[in-house]
Amino acid sequence: MELTRRNAIVMGAAAILAASLPVRGNAAAGDLIAAFTGGAEVGTGDIRLIAPEIAENGNTVPIEVSSDTAVEIMVLAMGNPTPNVATFKFGKLAASRAASTRIRLAGTQDVVAIAKLEDGSFVQTASTVKVTIGGCGG
């Protein structure tokens, strides 16, 4: 196809459409989720994710995951070049199934937390974090 201005616009629009269709991110994220769940269905329920609505800087975004009955919680940043962020496994002496950390986000995107619960089921939740671009670049 000859690259004309019109074609470029069409291609751009197609790219935007393609990017927006699988809302929950890329194939890599799908593989990671499948590896974590063993292909089991992921519902909603006992999993909470707290992340800022607007992150002042994508380099350092504080997040907190918690659940009442999770044995393990995986966090994914769906818009990062590699979506995996961290997996928390709670041991016998964990007083709560909760943890906080600081993460990197490459841009505005969904952060997803998937928990494996004590009963063997999987639940997930997501939160959109807007990452702002700085001021004068200084």
Partner: peptide, 23 residues
């Protein structure tokens, strides 16, 4: 606002400062 950021009064009482930008 300057683009997506807030303009302060530019005081230096907080220096040296740990910036999230360059950690």
């Amino acid at each position: 606002m300057i683009r997506a950021d807030h303009l302060s009064q530019g005081h230096i009482n907080g220096f040296p400062t740990y910036r999230l930008k360059n950690t």
